[in-house]
């Protein structure tokens, strides 16, 4: 009798969870609300990217819909600066030491992960979303959501979304022990009916042309990683030259949407076997040297994950 009851109640539970579409008051519902708000509202915010004991980078970020076009301007306020302007799917980048250029993209690749603007729910493969509670951030009532990595190979995130507009007000990247590694904190936010004046001043015709990133065709390398964190996918592979040293390296870029990992393989590199590990802010630099091969992994991941990835390198059979 009890067994039957248990089975029935289990069935009811699973049916209920299957029918549980993202509602307004679930973590999924909030993330969807955020993504929509980030793409459709007219807002002007200042935020700071903090890496404890390392850097502080203040940004100003404006977004608007002007005549049906999505326009966005992100500006780094310290030092020589970096300005990025996006009009629909064209991003123009102005930074020191590099001639201005444009590239085709429907999001600015800034300090905030692009997937938050697109389809945050795509992260469900690798991350769990948990609705935590409410608190006050930047003088506003917010809803907190935790994004937890399922296989614990990557850092977790805490997001605070504005209760009213759904916009992102704070984001913490935390390691397994709960220590903050990187923090994005909005200092001021204004959401307006009308787009900001600055967008009227942008002369679209004067923006630089889209550059073609494709590199001269080199025979594609055959390196493979046998182990990848769950939900991590290969985005691109090529062979290119490092701009600083001029060394030619084989390269693979992996991403799960929130975190990007670069893997560099340099063969014919004499030297003794060793491992090197550096942390630059949230970025882990890990190089693993074995025989004539040097594997370097760079990304915002725990060193253990970088090590495991580097160790799993193999050459594809065919």
């Amino acid at each position: 009798m009890w067994r039957v009851f248990a089975v029935v109640s289990l069935l009811i539970c699973s049916a209920a969870s299957a029918a549980d579409l993202p509602s307004e008051d679930s973590a999924q519902g909030w993330l969807t609300k955020m993504a929509t708000a980030l793409r459709t509202k007219n807002y002007d915010m200042s935020f700071v990217v903090l890496q404890p004991q390392s850097t502080v980078e203040p940004y100003r970020w404006r977004h608007a819909i002007v005549d049906g076009k999505e326009m966005e301007h992100l500006s780094l306020l310290n030092g020589p600066g970096r300005e990025m302007v996006r009009i629909d799917d064209k991003v123009s980048v102005f930074e020191p030491n590099v001639p201005a250029y444009s590239q085709q993209s429907d999001t600015i690749n800034g300090p905030l992960p692009a997937i938050l603007f697109r389809e945050p729910l795509d992260l469900a493969d690798a991350y769990n979303f948990v609705l935590v509670g409410r608190s006050r951030i930047s003088g506003r009532a917010t809803q907190q959501i935790r994004v937890i990595c399922k296989d614990k190979t990557r850092y977790g995130f805490n997001l605070w979304l504005d209760q009213e507009s759904g916009l992102l007000l704070k984001m913490d990247m935390v390691d397994q022990s709960g220590k903050i590694i990187e923090q994005v904190q909005v200092a001021s936010l204004s959401v307006t009916e009308k787009p900001a004046d600055i967008f009227q001043k942008i002369e679209e015709e004067k923006l630089p042309d889209i550059v073609n990133n494709s590199i001269a065709a080199l025979p594609e390398h055959k390196w493979q990683l046998r182990w990848l964190p769950q939900g991590m996918n290969e985005v691109r592979r090529d062979t290119h030259r490092l701009s600083v040293t001029g060394n030619v390296i084989d390269y693979i870029l992996y991403s799960d949407g929130l975190v990007d990992i670069s893997v560099y393989i340099q063969d014919d590199y004499p030297g003794e076997s060793n491992k090197n590990l550096y942390r630059h802010g949230a970025e882990t630099y890990y190089s693993f040297h074995q025989g004539n091969l040097e594997i370097t992994v760079v990304g915002k991941i725990p060193p253990q994950t970088a090590d495991r990835m580097a160790q799993s390198l193999a050459i594809e059979a065919n």
């Binding site: 993209s105 690749n109 985005v235 490092l242 990007d260 630059h280 630099y285």
Partner: peptide, 27 residues
């Protein structure tokens, strides 16, 4: 060397969206 790799990583990340848009289905 570390600077070289970190810089390149930043550059590659900035280039990523472009690639995602075009190569995603193929990838």
């Amino acid at each position: 060397k570390i600077i070289a790799f970190l810089t390149d990583h930043q550059q590659q990340m900035r280039r990523k969206t472009t690639e995602l848009e075009h190569n995603n289905p193929q990838q």
